[in-house]
């Protein structure tokens, strides 16, 4: 009996010692959990916002029956999706079929890990930073991880064993590769201006003036490419309902279907946050009496509303025009902008 208590005591001491030595580990884990949970619970709210706003844009009310202002609607939808029967057709590749939605969601959440959303502050003598991880090359990290998200769509198309799904998957990979170039190159002009790949440094460089005033063309290009990168209308070719039924997620039901949507909405938030950080000055409020994090959140919400606004305004582009637009219009403009920015920087 004594032996057991002794062992227990020693284990307890070891755990306490381990935790004391590894405070960065604890802080990191807590931040990881908070960010992952927060970003996942943003999704239903965003669905609600989108449906309400779309309703207003199309001169109707939108969901307003479940709860006040229809707030219960996303919860009801989530419960429905969770309890729906999951159907997998027998010709599908089971493993890849299950893997694809997971890849989409995981990459979307991981990409958000390096997004900073406020200034560091002190709690209990610990310097808590308002970001998951301060990677030196933060912006490259976001691009790398969101590039991995394409696999989810391609795999979904491949695994479904369905022509429409395959077409959707191929389209999405082609589209995202094409527009990733524009995205990267227009971000490169900001990298040239700040001389750093770190997102925190970029926000610090915009303390007096947001970069949208200095680089309006880069902002426009980045935003357009960002919409295409998140597969939102008018660039939602991979899931064009009229041509491809629903693209790469035609065969998906229940929660797996919802996971694709989760990935899309999280990517939307990440993209809005990225635009805010690069061009709108991040958490700088420019004289307005706002907390840094509130300023940041307001900018992101505004951009999300613009995303929804664009969806309800523009019709979908034809596929060949999408590619032509990406390669023959956006890319040369990007290179031109890069050339001018570089020259001005050197001079």
């Amino acid at each position: 009996m004594e032996l057991i208590t002794e062992i227990l005591n020693e284990t307890w001491d070891f755990i306490v010692l381990f935790l004391n030595e590894n405070i960065p580990l604890i802080v990191g884990s807590v931040k990881a959990v908070v960010i992952a949970v927060a970003i996942m619970s943003v999704v239903p709210a965003l669905v609600w916002l989108e449906r309400r706003l779309m309703g207003r844009f199309q001169v109707r009310l939108g969901p307003n029956r479940v709860g006040p202002l229809g707030f219960g609607q996303p919860m009801a939808d989530t419960v429905k999706l969770l309890f729906k029967e999951s159907i997998i057709q027998s010709s599908a590749d089971k493993f890849l079929f299950h893997l694809a939605p997971a890849v989409v969601v995981i990459t979307a959440i991981v990409a958000f890990a390096v997004i900073p959303f406020g200034e560091p502050f002190e709690v209990f003598g610990q310097n808590i930073e308002m970001w998951g991880a301060n990677v030196n090359s933060g912006i490259l990290f976001v691009f790398a991880i969101s590039g991995m998200g394409i696999y989810g769509m391609v795999l979904a198309g491949l695994a479904s064993n369905n022509k429409y799904s395959l077409m959707g998957g191929l389209r999405s990979s082609a589209q995202m590769i094409s527009y990733e170039l524009t995205l990267g190159l227009s971000a490169l002009s900001i990298i040239i201006l700040t001389g750093s790949l770190s997102l925190v440094d970029m926000v610090k460089a915009q303390e007096t003036l947001p970069f949208i005033l200095i680089q309006p063309l880069a902002f426009l290009l980045f935003f357009i490419a960002g919409i295409a990168e998140t597969n939102r209308a008018p660039f939602d070719l991979p899931e064009a309902e009229q041509e491809l039924v629903a693209g790469f997620h035609t065969e998906y039901t229940g929660m797996k279907f919802a996971m694709f949507f989760m990935g899309e909405y999280i990517n939307m938030v990440t993209m809005s946050a990225l635009v805010t950080l690069l061009f709108l000055g991040g958490w700088n409020s420019y004289g307005l009496p706002l907390w840094p994090i509130v300023a940041f959140a307001l900018k992101v919400i505004f951009l999300l509303c613009v995303f929804i606004w664009l969806r309800s305004t523009f019709p979908r582009i034809r596929y060949d025009r999408l590619m032509t637009f990406g390669w023959k219009v956006l890319l040369p403009l990007c290179l031109l902008n890069l050339l001018i920015t570089g020259t001005l920087k050197v001079i």
Binding site: L140, G147, M148, Y151, V154, L155, G157, L158, L166, G169
Partner: peptide, 19 residues
């Protein structure tokens, strides 16, 4: 860079061709 170039760009073309 490893992820962007190899895992992101090269391998997506592999998958594209396989598809």
């Amino acid at each position: 860079v490893q992820i962007i170039v190899y895992a992101g760009a090269v391998m997506i073309l592999f998958l594209f061709i396989i598809a």
